[in-house]
Structure formats: structure tokens, C-alpha cells
Simulated assay, not measured.
Amino acid sequence: MIIELTKEQKMLQKEMQRFCKKELTPEYVAWMDENVNFPPQELWDKFNEIGYFRASIPEEYGGDGLSWVDLMLIQEPVFKASMSVGMAMGVNHAFGGPFIKHLGTEEQKREFLPKFAEGKLKTCMALTEPGGGTDILGALSTYAVEKDDRWVINGEKVFITGAHVADYMVVICKTEENESPSKSLSIFIVPAKSDGITISKIPKISCHHCDSVGITFKDVEIPKKNILGARGKGWYQLIDVLNPERIAVALMGIGLMQAIYDECLAYVKQRHAFGGPISRFQILQKYLADMAINIENARNLTYKAAWLCDHGRPYHVETNMAKVVAAEGAMNAAVYGAEIFGGYGICMEYPIQRYVRDTFQIQFSPISNEMARNVIMQFQGLPKSWS
């Protein structure tokens, strides 16, 4: 499937490439990886100045109302420069705007969407719990109980991206005691500075400048109006909002692969061994060719999934395929890249070690590659292999 980019889309893509080349230099990204747990506010402000945060917000609420294909074009260069920055800046596109846009009341939309468009709010989604990641229905135990004119939340979340800097959290809780798991969930907007919320750092090897943290909710009270969508229908609403997330995760893999490929292609041309450039070695050409093939396959699948999503067509199979191809392609590229660079591949002076670390983050997120394969075959008529 060939997606012909419009003149405007090509300009959008080039603009973002120029921005990333200027603002996300290798030296700056390396500094962030070593020194911060979230991109500095000054970088956030620069993204805001170019209209990054208003891109996905509908025009009637102060945004640009860009399509998913448009969003891919502006996010791919960011992921190539830094997966951590791409995640940190993209959380609002993935979780803030979409939840409010699709599930919010008109009052909620007018309260939150213009602020997202203006870059004034940071958000996160609190879904995953210690008992399980992909097994959302079986593991989720955070509970919200009605008390007079409030909801009271108790429970624990884990691996929540950007919660430590968020202004608001989108929190998924159980609300129905006697219903089946798929009919027991509800979604809430929770002010991140509410009494009873405790944030705990989770040290990890990947995406150092976009921390994932643990959250404990102890008798956290929020207004009753802070529910998003219909009570007890959260599972079905969640699926509709989260399916495009896999498109974004596939794009992370594409960005990583492209960054690794570019670094390795330049390196084999200038590195000499045994009397000449190592680019003449057949095995290294094979590694690079495999990277190029995986980049092309992943990009085609990902942009196809985004196009199908934009046009209201089924895209669940394609987005899971894209996630698997991009994630596994990124892992292979990272391993090949480390081998091409040899000893330098594990030295902090070179970016390859960061690519190796970062690629682990997308092997299991938002679901594992194995589970994505199960979903693909479920759409081919086979039973759920995990039930």
C-alpha cells in the first residue's frame, strides 16, 4: 500500500526534521540521558512554540486537528532523535487529548482540551498494576467507591510514564463489585497533586529521561463529575482509545531502527580494519541490509495502520503487526549495531548503548510481542490462546 504524502505533509515532515536536528542534538540527548528524569521545561516550551501539543486537538478547542498520518510524520523524527523525548512529549497526544476528546463531556472538553493545545498541562495514563501488565482485566484491583458527592480511590499502579511530572492522571479503576471484569471498569480524571497520592521512582535501564514510576492511591478523593465516559463501560472505551497507541509504539521502533542504521552506515564507511573500510565485509552488509528491510516493512505497516485509522476502517490486525515488526526489528538492529561498533558499542561515549537499552522498552509495551501475535490470530478466527 502506497500512501502519497501531500505537499503540506511533506513540509510538516521537513519542519519537524529541522527542529529535531537543531534542538535534539546528539550531545544534548546524551546529557539528558545521564542527568534528567524528564525533558527540561525549556525543551517542552520549544515543542509548544512550534505547535506540537495542539496538533492532535480538534480545531474547535484550539488545536490543529491533524490526522494520525500527520502525527506520525511529526513524531517519527522525534523518536529517531530520542525515544525518551518522543515518549515524554507524545503522552499528551496518546492519552491526554484522546481520552477527553472521545469520552469527555462538553464541559470536560472545554476545560481541558484548550489547555492541552496550549501546552499548559502534562498528563499520564495510570492503568498497569503490579499483578499484571497485559492481563488488564485479571490484574486490575484499584477501586473507586462512591462517597456522597465524591469518588474515593484506593490501589496501586506501576510503570506509569511521566506520572511524576503530570498535572492530571487518567486513572482506570474498578467501580462495579458484582459485575464481570469487562463490565466493572470506569475511567477518571485525577489531579496529580491530590492528597493520598504517593509517587515512587522505578529505576530502569531504558528511556532514562522519561521516567516510569509507581503510584499509590490511599483514600484519594475526587469530584463525582471527574468520571470519563460511562460508568462500568471503561473496558470497551479503553480499547477504542488505546488501539492507536500501538501505532505510536511501532513508530518508536522505526525511529530507533533508523537512528541505528544511520549511525552504523556512517561508521562502516569510516572505520578501517585489515587494510580497508569494514563496509566491504559481507556480514556487515548483511546486518545493514536486514535493518533497511525491517525499517521499510515496519514503516509501511505503521503508516498503513494510521491511514486505516484515519479513514475509519478496521486496523487492529495491521497495528499489532506493525508493533511486532517494529519492536523486533529494533531489537535486531540494536544487537547488530553493537556488533558493528564492537567494543565502542558498549561505551557510553557512543549512542549505540542507549539504543540497545531503549529498545527493551517496546518489546513488552503496551503488550508483549507474543500477545500481539495472539491478537492477530484471534482476528483470523482462532481462540484466545491465553484463556
Score class of each variant (00 low, 15 high):
D70M: 06
E34N: 08
V145G: 02
I74E: 08
V85F: 12
R54G: 10
Y61T: 04
P58Q: 02
P98T: 11
G63V: 02
C124F: 04
G65S: 07
N37M: 06
L121E: 08
G96L: 03
S56C: 14
M125E: 12
A30D: 14
R110G: 15
M72Q: 14
D33L: 10
T105S: 14
D64W: 04
W44E: 14
V145R: 00
P114G: 09
E111A: 05
P98G: 15
H102F: 02
F112T: 06
E118A: 14
I100C: 03
A126F: 13
W151A: 12
Y61W: 03
D45P: 07
G63W: 01
S56V: 08
T25I: 06
E129A: 02
E146P: 00
D149L: 03
L24N: 08
D70A: 05
S82V: 11
Q17V: 15
K80Y: 06
E49N: 04
L127Q: 07
H102W: 03
F53P: 11
D135S: 08
E34G: 05
F95S: 10
K122G: 11
V91L: 15
G131M: 01
Q108A: 09
V69M: 02
E129Q: 03
W44L: 12
A139W: 01
I57H: 07
Q17Y: 13
F95W: 07
A55C: 15
E106C: 12
N48P: 11
I74V: 02
I136C: 04
S56K: 08
V152L: 04
K115L: 12
V91E: 15
F53A: 03
Y28L: 14
I50E: 11
I153A: 01
G96W: 10
K22V: 09
N48R: 11
K122A: 09
G133C: 01
N92Y: 00
V36D: 03
M89L: 05
G97E: 11
A117R: 05
C124M: 10
K115D: 09
V29M: 15
G96N: 09
P98S: 14
K101M: 12
L71Y: 03
R150I: 05
H93D: 13
E49C: 00
G97I: 11
A139L: 01
A88L: 09
V29H: 14
K109R: 15
K14S: 11
D148M: 01
P39R: 15
A117M: 07
L127H: 09
E27P: 08
L137N: 06
F99M: 13
S141M: 01
E106Q: 15
L71S: 05
L71R: 11
G97L: 00
P114M: 09
E42C: 07
V152G: 03
V36A: 11
H102I: 04
L121W: 11
G51K: 09
Y61R: 05
Q75D: 09
V91G: 13
M87K: 13
V78E: 01
R150A: 07
V91R: 15
E118N: 07
M16F: 12
F95T: 10
E27V: 06
G132T: 00
M32Q: 11
N35I: 06
D70V: 04
P77Y: 03
M16L: 10
